[in-house]
């Protein structure tokens, strides 16, 4: 449904995207996962025909994003990262405006937006600029959906949004996916990756990996251990000198220790810690999360630079 081939985007000396290729299937909920400045917005803006690529090509539903840009815009809904509705229009006026621009009415596509719009309908006479963050986000999504697009492109819809609103937003995306809409969504929150069908990890303009979240977590090439201790900061300092270390990072209340495959056991790690004066430690073998995968790929990338 979305084909990206060898896209490159350069601003002066800065390479924002380097040889990016992606293939997103019809009906997929696809996540673009990476920190700020990774190139997520640039890629989305190219797909939405708002930017021209320096090289390469992309198509959506077999329509070229450069040549057929007018048609592309009709079949896509876009929610930019910055709130870009009209702050001086009311909630209802914004929605009507977008419906009219696309030659449709709110009533015609009511079934699509009902779930979401219902939540902000009590405020329909309020100006969009006066809404809270969560409500703005719901209105923006309603506006992006009003012309019944086949593809939705959402640029960091959950950034700066609290954990509860984030969960609700992903539930909405699931429902839209079930209606057959292809969704490309970007996020800097690694924990949201597992809610996607497939994900691409992107960093410094390059795609580091593309797979289902499960595949990515299962194919973690090293050993990962969860270490619990009372003084997590001290323990992490000591683990920085353990043989065969790849990384040690705090994950909330625990440490994730990554060591080269087959070099350690829970006993050998515990022994190492005891020898260095750390007692009361729990070490368990664990599965990698997407964040672990991202950190490992970033580390490998930094080493080769």
């Amino acid at each position: 449904m979305i084909e990206v081939q060898n896209i490159r985007k350069q601003y002066g000396d800065v390479v924002a995207l380097e040889n990016v290729s992606l293939s997103i299937q019809r009906g997929e909920l696809f996540g673009l996962i990476g920190p700020d400045g990774a190139g997520k917005t640039t890629l989305m803006r190219i797909l939405m025909s708002l930017l021209l690529p320096t090289a390469g090509s992309a198509s959506m539903d077999n329509l070229d994003v450069v040549k057929d840009y007018k048609k592309v815009r009709l079949i896509t809904g876009y929610m930019p990262g910055r709130f870009s509705l009209y702050p001086d229009l009311t909630v209802e006026e914004n929605l009507k405006f977008f419906a009219t621009v696309f030659g449709t009415t709110i009533e015609e596509n009511d079934h699509l937006i009902k779930d979401i719009y219902q939540q902000i309908e009590p405020f329909k006479t309020r100006r969009a600029g006066q809404l809270s963050g969560g409500m703005k986000q719901k209105l923006a999504l309603s506006c992006a959906l009003i012309h019944k697009p086949e593809i939705l492109i959402l640029d960091e819809p959950t950034t700066g949004v609290d954990a509860v609103s984030r969960k609700e937003f992903w539930e909405m995306l699931k429902r839209l996916k079930n209606m057959g809409i292809t969704i490309l969504v970007s996020t800097p929150y690694m924990d949201e990756a597992t809610l996607c069908d497939r994900i691409a990890l992107i960093q410094e303009g390059k795609i580091m990996s593309v797979a289902t979240p499960e595949e990515m977590m299962h194919s973690f090439p090293e050993d990962l251990w969860t270490v619990r201790s009372r003084k997590i900061y001290n323990t992490s300092k000591i683990l920085e000198i353990i043989p065969s270390l790849i990384s040690v990072n705090s994950f909330g209340q625990v440490l994730h220790l990554v060591t080269a495959k087959g070099q350690h056991t829970t006993e050998s790690i515990r022994e190492f810690l005891t020898k260095n004066g750390e007692n009361d430690i729990i070490v368990e073998s664990d599965k990698a999360t997407i964040e672990d995968v991202f950190i490992l790929l970033m580390q490998k990338h930094n080493q080769t630079v």
Binding site: G34, P35, D36, A38, E156, T159, G160, P188, M190, Q203, N249, S250, E291, F294, I295, M298, Q299
Partner: peptide
């Protein structure tokens, strides 16, 4: 005030 929003996971930890 939200010092680590949008920051990559390695830098986020260095920040802490």
């Amino acid at each position: 005030d939200e010092p680590t929003g949008g920051v990559d996971p390695i830098t986020r930890r260095q920040f802490w």
